[in-house]
Amino acid sequence: MLISWLIEPLSFEFMRLAIAMGFFLGILGAVVGSYLILQQMGMMSGVVSHAVLPGIAVAFFWEINLAIGAFIAGILSALVVMLIQSRSTIKVDAAMALVLSSFLALGVILITLLKTHQIDLDDLLFGDILAITSLDVIQTAIITAIILILTKLFYKELEFYTFDPIGAKACGLPVNFLYFGLICAITITIVASMQTVGVLLVMSLLVGPAITAYLLVKELHEMMIIGAIIGVLSTVSGMYLSYYFDLPSGAAIVMIVFSFFLLSFLFSPKQGVLIRK
């Protein structure tokens, strides 16, 4: 009964692709998201995910790969936030709010000016799993593999940098290079997730599984592993919910991510609200 319930959706090509996609995005989001929230930059995922719009409009107009346009615009937005923060006394949350809406507005204007109305804003904002191709899945698998290898290679330096950036810089680590690498990883993850969950909901994949694990573990690598398991469980079960109850897939995934967080928030052995004495 349960097995046939699990297997039935797999007879459809689009569901097989969606679940494979969800698997890789669950891992990617948790690993990159762990660094993101330890840097106290959770909102940065919101900025980058909205700021990709002008890049997509321009890429569409020039008929180049939309992901490349999105990536460049996302990186630019992060650099603008950094610039405002480092060259003024303005705090980072205000800078992020301004940059997020300005890039989004620029995207809307570019879509109008360049007459690229064929861009379906709805799909972009909420994701469309029906449109996932096998090429998309392969692309995401390769991105996930690269990010995992880079994380392994630079693990100790990234841990030092995200824990004690000043101490890391003081003993000569190239902190700007590490920071830029993290920004690139975050942007790539967002661009890869966009199609499945949409720009409005991608924040959840980056932040949710990572903070859920954060409440359960005492070391960074455990946070990544448990976060990845939660991420994969969320994306895959979200796809099933979406299939059986005819729900929008992105929203279903996000609600499952939140349910896992709630469980951890209430019942984490060390930090659970209902457990702590």
């Binding site: 100790k156 841990e159 003993c171 070391e219 455990e222």
Partner: peptide
């Protein structure tokens, strides 16, 4: 050079053990 920053510059909730910090 070794530099020990002021304690309030560190996020003490960071998921890391004592031994790993010293290994840094």
């Amino acid at each position: 050079v070794a530099y020990v920053p002021q304690r309030n510059q560190i996020d003490w909730d960071y998921p890391i053990t004592v031994e790993k910090v010293v290994m840094m």
